[in-house]
Design a binder for these strands. Structure first.
Ligand SMILES: [Zn+2]
Ligand SMILES: [Zn+2]
Ligand SMILES: [Zn+2]
Ligand SMILES: [Zn+2]
Lengths: 167, 167
DNA sequence: GGTGTATAGTAACACTATAACAAAATATGC
DNA sequence: GCATATTTTGTTATAGTGTTACTATACACC
C-alpha cells in the first residue's frame, strides 16, 4: 500500500463538481465567492494543468472581460488563502488543490518533460520537515516542496531522451 | 544529537576563505573561474544573506563595471551548475552553498520576519523525498524544499508580532 | 437611506529573466 | 607563433512576473 493519501474525489479532474463544491463551501463558510473569483477558479480548474497568472488574464479577456494583472493576482491570493489553489514557485504557476476541504501540507512532483504536476500528500515528508524545523527551533508557516524530475509516463515513453518538449 | 549535517568549514561566514577554496577547486577541476565569475561569487558571499540578481548587478556597477542583467544570470547559472550557489525560488534570490565540495540535496529555512535563510541537509528529508518519488515512479532531478516560517531568533525576540520588517 | 467595509477597476510601474547577435578572450592543433 | 574552434562576455532589446496607488463600485450593517 502506498504511503500517499488517496482521494476519492479528485475535484481537479471534474471542474463542474469542483465548482459546485466550492459554491457550497463558501456559502457555508459565509465567504464571498464572487463572479470574478468563481470565473478565475473555473479557468484554473479547466486548464487541467498549472496555469500562469497572465494565461488566466488572457482567458478572462477571451470572455469579454477587461481585466488587469492585479485583478488576477488578487483573486489568486484569495484562492490560495482559502486553500483552493496552490502556487508553484518553481514554475510561476497556479493549480487547483485536489482536496481543498482537507487542510494539508502538499508536495508537488513537477515533470520537466511534459509539464504535468502531481500533488501528493506524504505524511512521512510532513513529519521529516516538522522534525527538521523543530530541531532548528524554526516555526514553520508554509513548507514548500517542489520536486523537479521526469514523471512515470515520460520516463516510460523515453520522451526525456528526445528533448522533452513541454506541451 | 541533531540529524543535521554539521559543517566545520562554513565558508559562507568567511568570504575570503570561501573564495580561496573556490580558486583551488576550479584550478584543480580545470574549470575557468574568470574575474567576473569570481567577482559575482564574492558579492554573493559578502552579502551574508540571499541576494537578488539585480542587487548583484548593482554592486558590480558600484565597482566601476558596466554590466547587463544577462551577465549576472549567466554567471549565476554557472555557479549553480558548479554547486557553489543555490537559488531560492520562493524569494527569487541566490545564496552561497555552505558545503560546495560536498554534493548534496539541501533544504532551506526561510525566515519571513528577518529574511535570513539557513541551509540544512537533512538525510531524513532526503530519504522521504526519494521514497515518495519512487512510489510515484517519478525520477527526481532536483528536489526543492523551501520552508517558510519564523526563525529561532525572531521567534525568541517576538519580532513577528511587531510586524516583521525584513532587514 | 446612510455609513463603513470589502471587492474590483484603472493606470502606471517595479522586478525578474531571456533572446539574438557581436566582440573579445581563451584553448587547441599545427 | 599562428590560424582556428570554443568559450566567455558585451550590447541591445524584449519577454515574463508581480506590485503600488488611487478610484469606483458593490455589499453588509445599522
Ligand atoms: Zn492541495
Ligand atoms: Zn512527464
Ligand atoms: Zn549547499
Ligand atoms: Zn528571523
Amino acid at each position: 500500500m502506498s504511503v500517499f493519501a488517496h482521494h476519492t474525489h479528485d475535484y481537479a479532474s471534474d471542474p463542474d463538481a469542483a465548482l459546485e463544491a466550492a459554491d457550497q463551501h463558501f456559502l457555508k463558510a459565509g465567504v464571498r465567492f464572487t463572479p470574478l473569483r468563481r470565473r478565475v477558479f473555473e479557468i484554473i480548474l479547466r486548464a487541467g494543468k498549472p496555469i500562469g497568472a497572465y494565461d488566466i488574464l488572457e482567458r478572462l479577456r477571451d470572455h469579454g472581460k477587461i481585466a488587469a494583472p492585479i485583478s488576477v493576482y488578487r483573486v489568486l491570493d484569495f484562492l490560495i488563502e482559502q486553500r483552493f489553489v496552490h502556487r508553484l514557485a518553481t514554475i510561476n504557476a497556479y493549480m487547483a488543490c485536489v482536496t481543498p476541504e482537507d487542510p494539508h501540507a502538499a508536495q508537488f512532483l513537477i515533470c520537466q518533460c511534459c509539464g504535468s504536476v502531481t500533488e501528493i500528500s506524504d505524511p512521512v515528508m510532513d513529519k521529516a520537515i516538522a522534525d527538521g524545523a523543530k530541531t532548528a527551533n524554526f516555526q514553520v508557516s508554509y513548507p514548500l516542496v517542489e520536486i523537479m524530475g521526469i514523471c512515470a509516463d515520460c520516463s516510460k515513453a523515453g520522451k526525456q531522451a528526445k528533448g522533452c518538449k513541454k506541451s
